[in-house]
């Protein structure tokens, strides 16, 4: 998938979070890494159409995204978004969470939506969780159901905002396995992550964001083995310091 970010800026109440973000590449799986508070999540929200940029342009596969509410509504239906935590509707069961957008955003029949949801639950070993409410599910299950909900809508692009940062290592593996499987099937993804192992092995492209701008980007093989900038070198040294 081709993505172009042209001079994207975002500020909240006069405070600048993203400054002149420019990027252009063709990717299957893209990882966004960087220190906390660098603007990674904000950038992902702009790409997902959840947040309009203060200025700048976004193109996906050559199509310009217009940030008007009306056009965003249909744009969001083509993009999957997975939140860091609490990404399920808390008053709905797991199955209902997956069915709701199928019925009300994609206008599917209820029986069709239920069938599609159940197939996904069966495939990812979530059958027993279907009738549970979010508060009855583990963090890993919640994240996998969020991914299932996004995938059920057959998006052209799946965005994930630190989907494993609130999970312990075992649950993290369970979520990343599911994700790896979907990527292998050709699902295009952009993931904001602190899991350097995943960024390195499962994503072929990496963006390093620091201080509200893209400091370095490129193939993940090169980014992790031969970082060019001092900032990225320092960041990688720090996060990989305690690696086993």
């Amino acid at each position: 998938m081709k993505i172009v970010l042209n001079k994207i800026c975002k500020s909240f109440a006069g405070k600048s979070v993203l400054k002149n973000v420019c990027y252009e590449d063709d990717f299957k799986a893209l990882a966004i890494i960087g220190p906390s508070g660098a603007g990674k999540s904000t950038l992902l929200r702009i790409i997902g159409g959840l947040l309009p940029p203060t200025s700048g342009e976004l193109y996906l596969d050559g199509v310009k995204i217009n940030f008007t509410e009306k056009e965003l509504l249909s744009y969001r239906r083509t993009i999957g978004f997975v939140f860091q935590t609490k990404g399920l509707f808390e008053h709905l069961t797991a199955l209902e969470n997956v069915m709701l957008p199928l019925i009300h955003s994609l206008q599917l029949e209820k029986t069709e939506a239920e069938e599609r949801a159940k197939q996904l639950f069966a495939r990812f070993g979530l059958e027993r969780e279907g009738y549970k409410y979010p508060h009855q599910l583990s963090g890993g299950q919640q994240q996998r159901i969020q991914i299932a909900r996004a995938v059920a809508m057959k998006p052209k692009l799946l965005l994930l905002d630190e989907p494993t940062s609130a999970l312990d290592p075992e649950l993290t593996a369970e979520v990343l396995d599911m994700l790896g499987e979907l990527q292998a099937e050709g699902l295009k993804t952009i993931i904001v992550t602190h899991e350097m192992g995943f960024a390195k092995r499962a994503c072929e492209k990496v963006i390093f964001v620091a201080g509200g701008t893209i400091v370095e980007s490129g193939d993940s093989a090169q980014i992790f083995t031969a970082p060019q900038t001092k900032a990225l070198q320092a960041f990688l040294n720090k996060v990989l310091e305690w690696r086993p």
């Binding site: 978004f81 990404g87 509707f89 808390e90 008053h91 009300h104 955003s105 809508m153």
Partner: peptide
């Protein structure tokens, strides 16, 4: 109500009217 519930509704492509009926009101 956690603000993220509304962002969630946005992300899955619900219209404002449906967000009110299916999310805000029951919560």
């Amino acid at each position: 109500i956690d603000r993220q519930q509304f962002e969630l509704a946005k992300a899955v492509g619900l219209t404002p009217a449906k967000t009110f009926r299916l999310v805000t009101f029951p919560l």
